[in-house]
Design a protein around this nucleic acid. Structure first.
Lengths: 343, 343
DNA sequence: TCCGGTGGTGTAAACGCTTGCAGGACGCCC
DNA sequence: GGGCGTCCTGCAAGCGTTTACACCACCGGA
C-alpha cells in the first residue's frame, strides 16, 4: 500500500488512486521517523554556525536552508558560539539524530579529527574554517617568509579525505584590497585587526604579499579583537605615530572592525576618504550604512551555504564531490576609499 | 541493559557501571530516531523564522536554541520568508518529522487554524504575529475610534486554546516613544512607515493614543515599506510640506525605516537631532552605528525566544502554560532625539 | 493443454529502542 | 526449612516504515 504513495512503478493506476483517496481521507502523513529508522538515514542535515545573531552566518544559513529545502531535506540548527567544545557536543547530538550530513560553518575546531573522532560516518563539510592558532602565530605571519607561513596555515587546517571545505579566498581578497589602494596611489598602508585565527592570518599574508608585489614597504600591522571597539582602540594607538609615519590607508580585518577604525579616524579629526582611506572585508549589512559607506570585499555568503549543502548531497549520492572550494571575493566600491591626500 | 544508561532507579550500581563501561568501549550512541519511534515524540522542535539573514530574527532564534539546548532539545529550522504558504508547508514538514512543538516567529499566517488545520497535535507558539491585514485597514487605523480598531486588530490575531503567543507590546512601545518626544517638548510629530500588518497598526494606534493623551494634534501618518529605501522615499514626500506644517520629530515604524528617514532629512540639509528628532523601533544592531546613533525601543528578542521555548516545554509537560505574554520594550536613548528647535 | 514469464499485490522481517511483565536470587519471618 | 516479599534482570512485543520475497492471475508461445 505504501508503495502506491511513493510512486513505485509496479502499481496499477487504479490501485494507486484508491490508496491515495484513502490516505487523504485519513489525512495520513508518512512518518519520517519510522522511515529513518529502517533506512538508517534521515533526510535531515545538521548545521552548526557560530552565531545566528550575526547576519553573515545568517545568510550562510539561509543558503544552506534554501538548498536543503529544495532537495526536501530539513536542517537541524545549533549555534557553536565559536567554542570548539560546543561544536563537538552538538555534532554528537547531530550524530545521535542520525543526520545525513553535517555542515560546520565558521569551524573553530582545530582539525578534522577534532570534530568526529576518527572517521565520521556521515559527510562533513566546513564553511570557512576559523580555527584559532596559538597567539605566537601573529608575529610569525608578520615576519616569516610568506611561503613558509602559508604552508603552516594550510597544514594546520588540512582536511582529510572525509571532509569537504567551502572557504573564502582570504588571501586573494586581501590582495585585491591592497591592489585597489595601490591603484589609487596609496603608498603607506596599515592593517588593523590581526588575530591568531586562520582567516586573519591569511588576510595579513595577502596584505604583505600584495605590498611586496607593488614594491611598497610593509605598513603597520596592528592586532585587535574583530569588533568596532577593537578597531577603534587599535586605531587610536596607530594614530599616535609621528605624522610622517601615518598611513594614508587602513585595511581592516573585517567590516565591523572597519567601522571602529572610521570612528577613531573621525575622532582624530581626519576625513574619510579625503585624508584617510579605510577598507573592510565581508560586506556585512552595516557596511552600506556606515558614514561614509564602506568599500569592502564581498563574500558570496549565500552561495557558500548552497555549495555546502550541494556538497553534502553529492556525498550522499556517492559521487565523491570536489573536496575543497576556495571562493573569490568581489570588490565593492563605496565611498570610504579614495586617492591619498595630495594627489 | 538500556535501562542502566537512562538512570533507571531499579538498577544496581555495579551493573550500571558495567553497562556503562561496555557502552563506552563500543562507543554506543543511543539512537534518537528509534527512541522517537517508540515514544511517539521526539526531542526536537520546529522553528520557523521569516529570515535568518535578519539579525532580529537571528537573535530570537538564538534565544530559542539556547533554551532548547539547555533542555536537551534540538531545533529544526526553516525560513518562511514571511510567506504564509511557505509557513504552512514547513509546518507540514515539521509535523512529519514528529517534532514535539512548533515555534512560529514573525507569523504571517492569518489565524490559528491557518497553520495546522483544526487542532494541532503538538504545542504551537507564535513569537510576534506579523499577520498582514487588508490594505484598507491603514486608513481605518488612522481615523477610527481607537477602541474599535484595537478590538479589530486583536480579534484578527486571536489565538485559540491550543496556541500560545509571545508578542512585543507594540502599542505600549509607540506610546513610550511619543511620551519621550513630548517630554522633550515636541508638538508636531509624524509617523513614517505605516503598513497593513499587525505590529504596524498597533504602533500607529499607540502613536495616536499617546498624542491624544498629551493633548496634541495628530501628526502626519505616512505609509511606506519598512526599509531604508521606504523610509527615505516617504520622508522625501513628507518634507515637501509647507515649512510651518513640518513636524519637529518623526517616529519611524522600525530602525531600518528610521535610517532611511535620517538620510532623507540630512539630504534636505536638516540636522538630526538639532532641527529634527528621529526615533526608531526594535534596536537592531545597526541602530547603534547610524549617524547619529538612533534612539529607539528595544525588543527583548532573546528573551522572547527563550520564553517561546519555555512555553513549548511546559506544554509538553502538560502544564497548561500561560497562553499569551505581551513583553514591554525598553527606551534606548541615543543621539537622534533632542529638544525641538527653539527650545 | 501446459508451462514459463510477467506484472501486480500481499506478507513478514527488520530497523533500535521502550516498557510491561515474567521470573530468578536472595533474605527474612514464621 | 518453606513461603513470601523485595530487588533486580531478561525477555518480548510493538512503534511505522522499507524491502525482499512469495504468490497469484493472466497471457502468449510451444
Amino acid at each position: 500500500m505504501t508503495r502506491a504513495l511513493q510512486g513505485h512503478p509496479a502499481v496499477r493506476d487504479e490501485t494507486r488512486r484508491k490508496v491515495e483517496a484513502a490516505a487523504r481521507r485519513l489525512d495520513y502523513r508518512p512518518d519520517h521517523i519510522a522511515r529513518a529508522l529502517v533506512t538508517r538515514t534521515s533526510s535531515t542535515v545538521g548545521m552548526l554556525i557560530p552565531s545566528s545573531v550575526d547576519s553573515f552566518w545568517g545568510e550562510v544559513a539561509a543558503g544552506i536552508e534554501e538548498a536543503a529545502s529544495e532537495a526536501n531535506y530539513s536542517v537541524l540548527f545549533a549555534n557553536s558560539h565559536s567554542q570548539p567544545e560546543r561544536e563537538r557536543r552538538m555534532i554528537e547530538v547531530f550524530l545521535a539524530q542520525r543526520v545525513a550530513g553535517i555542515i560546520i560553518a565558521g569551524a573553530a575546531g582545530e582539525s578534522a579529527s577534532w570534530f568526529c573522532g576518527e572517521e565520521p560516518d556521515v559527510p562533513v563539510v566546513i564553511v570557512n574554517w576559523d580555527a584559532a592558532f596559538p597567539a605566537r602565530f601573529v608575529p610569525i605571519v608578520r615576519t616569516g617568509s610568506p611561503q613558509r607561513v602559508l604552508k603552516a596555515v594550510r597544514a594546520a587546517t588540512e582536511t582529510d579525505a572525509s571532509f569537504s571545505q567551502i572557504v573564502f579566498d582570504d588571501l586573494g581578497g586581501a590582495q585585491q584590497v591592497v591592489r585597489h589602494l595601490v591603484s589609487l596611489g596609496h603608498e603607506r598602508i596599515a592593517f588593523v585587526g590581526a588575530e591568531p585565527i586562520r582567516p586573519s592570518l591569511l588576510r595579513v599574508l595577502g596584505f604583505r604579499s600584495a605590498l611586496l608585489e607593488a614594491g611598497l614597504p610593509l605598513g603597520a600591522i596592528v592586532s585587535s579583537p574583530r569588533s568596532p571597539e577593537g578597531g577603534f582602540q587599535a586605531t587610536q594607538d596607530l594614530l599616535t605615530s609621528p605624522p610622517d609615519d601615518l598611513p594614508t590607508a587602513i585595511v581592516a580585518y573585517d567590516d565591523a572592525t572597519a567601522i571602529g577604525v572610521i570612528r577613531a579616524v573621525h575622532a582624530h579629526g581626519i576625513d574619510v576618504p579625503g585624508a584617510m582611506s579605510v577598507i573592510g572585508f565581508d560586506d556585512i549589512e552595516m557596511a552600506a550604512f556606515s558614514e561614509p559607506p564602506l568599500t569592502t570585499i564581498r563574500q558570496p555568503r549565500r552561495e557558500m551555504g548552497r555549495m555546502a549543502m550541494a556538497s553534502i548531497l553529492s556525498s550522499i549520492r556517492g559521487e565523491s564531490a570536489q573536496r575543497s572550494s576556495v571562493l573569490p571575493g568581489e570588490l565593492v566600491l563605496r565611498r570610504s576609499t579614495g586617492p591619498p591626500p595630495g594627489r
